[in-house]
Structure formats: structure tokens, C-alpha cells
């Protein structure tokens, strides 16, 4: 699980072009500067590839902060 956390941080920091340290459990659409609609799309693609999962269509719009991402990724990994 801890490993998943760091992989999510890695994906988010890569997609949003920011430092690892600046992504944490509090990161969300509201406080990550580069988190726009286009990068949101790239985030989904990158998460799916990283974890070899498919994020269901209805969840795509819900992945708006770190904690929700973590929950949805873990759900799909089950």
C-alpha cells in the first residue's frame, strides 16, 4: 500500500510537471497549479498504465485529489 502511495506521487508529479515533494495527501485540483482538464486526461492514462488497471468511466470525474485517487486505484487493484 505504501508502495502504491509513492507510485501515485510519481505519476502525479510527472504528469503535473512538479517536484515529488510538492505532491502529498492534501494535493488536489485546487492546490496543484498544472492540474487542468487536459492534464487530468493524461493523469488517467498514466495511472492506468502504471497500475495496469482500467478506471471506470463514471470514476474519471471523481479523481480530483490524492486520497480519492488512492481509494479508486486500490479498488481497481482488488
Amino acid at each position: 500500500m505504501e508502495n502504491n502511495k509513492s507510485r501515485i506521487i510519481l505519476v502525479m508529479s510527472s504528469v503535473f510537471e512538479t517536484e515529488h515533494e510538492s505532491i502529498n495527501e492534501e494535493s488536489s485540483v485546487d492546490n496543484v497549479e498544472n492540474w487542468d482538464s487536459i492534464r487530468h486526461l493524461n493523469l488517467i492514462l498514466a495511472l492506468e498504465e502504471e497500475f495496469r488497471i482500467t478506471i471506470p468511466d463514471e470514476e474519471v470525474g471523481n479523481l480530483v485529489n490524492f486520497k480519492l485517487i488512492e481509494i479508486i486505484v486500490n479498488e481497481q487493484l482488488k
Binding site: L10, L45, E49, E50
Partner: peptide, 8 residues
């Protein structure tokens, strides 16, 4: 390479 790896 994964997309994340390419980005990094």
C-alpha cells in the same frame, strides 16, 4: 516505456 517513465 510507460507514459510516466517517458514524462520523467
Amino acid at each position: 516505456l510507460k507514459y510516466t517513465e517517458i514524462l520523467q
